[in-house]
Write a protein that binds this DNA or RNA. Structure first.
Length: 466
RNA sequence: GGUGCGGUAGCCAAGUGGUAAGGCCAGAGUCUGCAAAACUCUCAUUCGUCGGUUCGAUUCCGACCCGCACCUCCA
């Protein structure tokens, strides 16, 4: 079976390939930079990263846009409260976000674009909508008239029949003709930041930025539009309404939505005290790749129950994979090739690919890896394993790690160099040979305090960092 | 009320019309100068409840119970 994704639009699993057969044009809803990203946000961005990496492993090139929302009500309120400009206020959180991404080994999309740098494109899009009769003005602001877009609701599968269209409903601080209508351009309020444009002095609504930036960089029809499940309605529904009203073409072929993360079985919230940022977790002593593993290990369409026990389990699981890689690299094997082992590696590779192709079934893919790990360890113990097989195993691990990216430990500052460790290990081996166990144990204890663990195996002593 | 998702071992979590992957924890063992580390083995007659279809259902259908999300800002 080929690569397939669950498309929220059709509510079915569909085979995927890009329009041009080569480059995947993908838009991912990025962060609103008014606070530090929490692990729930990062779950979604980790999903987007896994998606990127698997698309590339499947042979496609990527053209991926991620937006940074750096203007909205909350940002304006917070910035004004601190007497800062929008840019002064958002710069810190944007930088922190990009840093978190790098720490979690999330690849930087080809284009990371700011809303405030695309006001012109948004205004142009609103004007086009206006020319086609999809907008109206009320109290100086511009709104989208949902009644003109009959397909509204096709993504979220909401039935709006129960709502009373045409009734004048007061929502928020603005007057709208229909409760579903949303603001495209907000009239300037005294003292707030604004842009003086042909459609008035004001600022953009939230939804228009994604339509404008997506189409600017990726064209009228995207291959994939991804984001958190909560954005499905109204944000993504509104993006469709805005974009398709202007182009008359499907805005995105595939819509992929990541489920939410919950913490210890409960919705994450500051009041429950279970609200974590990546920094919080690192401060507790967890490695970034541990968090990455945990966030990636549950398939993206399932809720992910984040627990401290789960973080520990992730750390242990990574250790096993690393130990396995170390064994493949360091143990001496016969200079040949065992047919059964070769068959095992190719079968595992096929099953790993099949799991990932199946709508990114990361849990299934991990299951394949651990099964392979156990069977291979047994084969190595039994001597039914050659150097060629070690190479095959490492190739599979490399395929795995191009997507999961957890095998390389995050470098910690300071500590002993590899050379220094190797020298001490050699000294200990010599001491053992001379039956000077006191000195050998001293070195072992010494290295232990420096975070170096020794393993005495039948092939000699090997070491690793904790 | 509408829409959608889910209930699989102590915890996390795949999966299939043919009799339950994997990870963690726990127990046992192998290796070892002693350890540690590592590795191996064991660990759900059972998949929310009750019916139905079927030779056979955890997997399909129906009802019910429970939990959750969205319908307003939210990854």
């Amino acid at each position: 079976m080929a690569l397939r994704f669950y498309n929220s639009l059709s509510q079915h699993l569909e085979p995927f390939s890009p329009q041009d057969g080569r480059t995947v044009r993908m838009y991912c809803c990025g962060p609103t930079v008014y606070h530090y990203a929490h692990i729930g946000n990062l779950r979604t961005f980790t999903f987007q990263d896994i998606l990127r990496r698997w698309l590339r492993s499947s042979g496609f090139a990527l053209d991926n846009v991620m937006n940074i929302t750096d203007v909205d009500d909350k940002i304006i309120r917070a910035a004004m409260g601190q007497g800062k400009t929008l840019q002064e206020y958002t710069a810190e959180y944007e930088a922190a976000f990009l840093e978190d991404m790098a720490t979690l080994r999330l690849e930087r999309p080809e284009h990371v674009v700011r809303a405030t740098e695309h006001i012109g494109e948004m205004v142009e899009l609103i004007q086009q909508l206006g020319a086609k009769g999809f907008t109206y003005e009320s109290d100086g602001s511009t709104y989208y008239r949902i009644a003109r877009f009959p397909e509204y609701g096709k993504l979220s599968h909401n039935d709006f029949g129960g709502m009373i269209a045409g009734a004048r409903v007061d929502v928020d601080e603005y007057d709208k003709d229909d409760a579903r209508d949303f603001v495209l351009w907000k009239q300037k309020k005294e003292g707030e930041p604004s842009w003086d444009t042909p459609i008035g002095d004001g600022r953009p609504g939230w939804h228009i930025e994604c339509s404008a930036m997506a189409m600017k960089y990726l064209g009228s029809t995207l291959d994939i539009h991804a984001g958190g499940i909560d954005l499905q309605f109204p944000h993504h529904e509104n993006e469709i309404a805005q974009s398709e009203a202007v182009t008359g073409k499907p805005f995105a072929r595939f819509w992929l939505h990541a489920e939410h993360l919950i913490v210890e079985g409960q919705k994450m919230s500051k009041s429950l005290g279970n609200f974590y940022t990546l920094r919080d977790l690192l401060a507790l002593g967890y490695a970034p790749e541990t968090v990455r593993y945990l966030l990636a290990s549950v398939p993206y369409r399932n809720k992910l129950n984040f627990t401290m026990e789960g973080v520990k389990a992730a750390a242990t699981a990574i250790d096993r994979l690393r130990n396995f890689e170390l064994r493949l690299r360091s143990e001496r094997f016969a200079d040949d090739k065992n047919a059964a082992a070769t068959e095992r590696a190719s079968a595992a590779t096929a099953r790993f690919r099949e799991a990932m192709d199946d709508d990114l079934n990361t849990a299934g893919a991990l299951g394949v890896m651990f099964e392979f790990l156990r069977d291979t360890n047994s084969a190595m113990d039994a001597g039914q394993f050659g150097i060629e097989n070690a190479y095959e195993g490492l190739v599979l691990l490399a395929l795995f790690d191009r997507v999961f990216d957890v095998l390389r430990p995050t470098a910690t500052a300071g500590g002993l160099s590899d050379e220094a460790v190797a020298a001490l290990v050699a000294e200990r081996v010599a001491a053992k040979k001379a039956r000077n166990f006191a000195r050998a144990d001293e070195i072992r204890a010494d290295l232990d305090t420096q975070g170096i663990v020794l393993e005495d195996t039948k092939d000699g002593t090997r070491w690793k960092r904790k």
